[in-house]
């Protein structure tokens, strides 16, 4: 069924498994390269805090969903697999939503509908379809959290720059020193507006592809 089924005694962090974890951070990055799960990257990155909460939620949902689908992979009839996957993801997201409401209510208010939209985050569906359906639980788990981390770092980078330049703060603390404002420095209110998120991601992609020329789109 998979390349792993012939090697039952594989070490937990064998080179192959490590690759599953590290590839999505760079040349298989879900956002910069596979173009999945863009919606939330753009919408909730006005502040670093919401970005961090969102990244953690996605790591949790994605790791668990990959393990569950991978455990069920032999029992799911292929015809109805999409609805089974959606049900599993939706149940996990309901859990995350309730936890967020209980412990960080203000952040959960700010994230508003975007917690629910983790369900339709294409990275999760994409990885379930492409990987977890055909592989054992442990590699699937690594693949899941690897991709979620790949998603997370882009999220945090965008959040970092948007909050730094947009409001001069990080995690709500003032980091741009006051004397700069006296010298005439102004917060760039434009960074808080939605379109700048797109341009920030565009620039991240630019830098990423500039450093790794093999990713350049030749079509």
């Amino acid at each position: 069924m998979s390349e792993y089924s012939n090697t039952p005694k594989e070490a937990l962090f064998s080179p192959q498994n490590r690759k599953l974890l590290t590839n999505p951070l760079g040349k298989d990055n879900p956002i910069n390269v596979q173009v999945l799960g863009i919606c939330s990257v753009l919408a909730i990155t006005v502040q670093l805090r919401t970005s961090i909460v969102m990244a953690i939620s996605v790591v949790a949902v994605m790791g668990l969903a990959n393990v569950i689908i991978s455990l069920l992979r032999k029992t799911i009839p292929p015809r109805i697999r999409i609805i089974v996957q959606l049900t599993v993801i939706a149940s996990l997201v309901i859990l995350v939503d309730q936890v967020l409401k209980a412990f960080v209510y203000d952040v959960s208010r700010q994230l508003s509908v975007f917690v629910g939209l983790i369900i339709t985050n294409c990275i999760i569906m994409g990885r379930l379809e492409a990987y977890a359906l055909n592989n054992k639980p442990w590699p699937s788990f690594l693949d899941g959290i690897g991709n979620a981390f790949g998603y997370g770092w882009v999220l945090l980078t965008v959040g970092f720059f948007r909050e730094l330049f947009g409001s001069g703060t990080l995690m709500g603390y003032q980091v741009i020193p006051g004397f700069l404002y006296d010298l005439g420095y102004e917060n760039n209110g434009f960074m808080i507006l939605p379109p700048m998120a797109l341009i920030t991601v565009g620039i991240i992609i630019w830098v990423h592809r500039h450093r790794d020329r093999s990713l350049v789109d030749i079509s």
């Binding site: 173009v35 341009i199 592809r209 350049v216």
Partner: peptide, 20 residues
């Protein structure tokens, strides 16, 4: 378009401009 920006990158930036 500069090579690393081709495809995805420029699409993002254009979408940003359309958003504005």
């Amino acid at each position: 378009v500069p090579a690393p920006l081709r495809g995805l990158g420029i699409t993002f930036i254009i979408t940003g401009l359309m958003g504005i």
